[in-house]
């Protein structure tokens, strides 16, 4: 049976992880590659590396890091953060990335999704959407959630699928950081509406939240950062918990 995926997300700055890490037995806990390998050994199904570097040297640093990750990691990984052009993507593919995630650049120029899907294949293109509920609609936000738009999330993800996106990484800003659980209704609605897989993100606080997002939320995968990094939820324990709930887990 196809299993639900558990995906830790690592924030990267200048080639190093930025969030606090509780792993023991790591030679260098700030090293993204070491941390990625530790997660892979714990049973993570995929990894997302989100680059938050803001320097001109960025592309070179990131492509070097992606190459080191690809050399050392034996599970699939996605690279995201400030990807703007076909050129950015070609460098990352050539360095060994399995998938890239795009967000703001795709909203500003939706043809980018089409071009990337045609050039590299849909399986390579993850569309990341940051969204907030305004009391009436779920709306798309840009630039890491700092810039509001009037674009409705349900319209945007549908267009992204039609343009060839291979997956949607859906982050609810209302839930992100709360540790009160994922956005169940929104995720279920998007998952039922689309043919492509949905990665739910934002709000994970405990194992029960993962069970909810897979059952009620109908997500294909669930992403979290801090609860894994701080050891609040350990991936082997989480997977054991979900298996006992009869959820398909590797």
């Amino acid at each position: 049976m196809l299993t639900k995926r558990i995906i830790p997300c690592l924030d990267i700055k200048d080639g190093r992880t930025v969030k606090g890490i509780n792993f023991i037995n790591l030679r260098d806990a700030g090293d993204a590659v070491e941390l990625g390998k530790a997660y892979a050994e714990q049973g993570a199904d995929e990894l997302v590396f989100l680059d938050i570097t803001a320097t001109v040297e960025k592309r070179k640093t990131l492509s070097d890091l992606v190459k080191r990750i690809a050399q050392n990691l034996n599970i699939p990984f996605t690279v995201g953060g400030g990807i703007n052009s076909i050129g950015d993507v070609a460098v990352l593919l050539d360095s060994g990335a399995d998938k890239i995630s795009i967000n703001t650049a795709a909203v500003k120029r939706p043809e980018l999704i089409t071009e990337l899907a045609k050039g590299f294949g849909s399986q390579f293109v993850v569309l990341a959407v940051d969204t907030r509920f305004d009391g009436k609609d779920w709306l798309v936000y840009l630039n890491g959630g700092r810039t509001a738009t009037e674009i409705k999330t349900l319209d945007w993800v549908k267009e992204a699928q039609e343009r060839g996106a291979g997956e949607i990484l859906l982050t609810s800003m209302n839930h992100d950081g709360t540790k009160n659980g994922f956005a169940l209704d929104l995720t279920a609605k998007v998952s039922e509406m689309l043919k492509i897989p949905i990665i739910a993100s934002g709000g994970a606080g405990n194992s029960e939240h993962f069970a909810e997002i897979f059952i009620q939320g109908k997500a294909d995968a669930a992403l979290a950062a801090s609860i894994f990094h701080f050891g609040e939820v350990l991936i082997p324990d989480l997977k054991f918990f979900l298996k006992n709930k009869n959820i398909a887990i590797r």
């Binding site: 049976m1 196809l2 299993t3 639900k4 849909s122 399986q123 590797r250």
Partner: peptide, 11 residues
């Protein structure tokens, strides 16, 4: 009715 592509870990 299932998601396409078939993406992820399977037996």
């Amino acid at each position: 009715q299932e998601k396409i592509p078939h993406m992820g870990w399977n037996q």
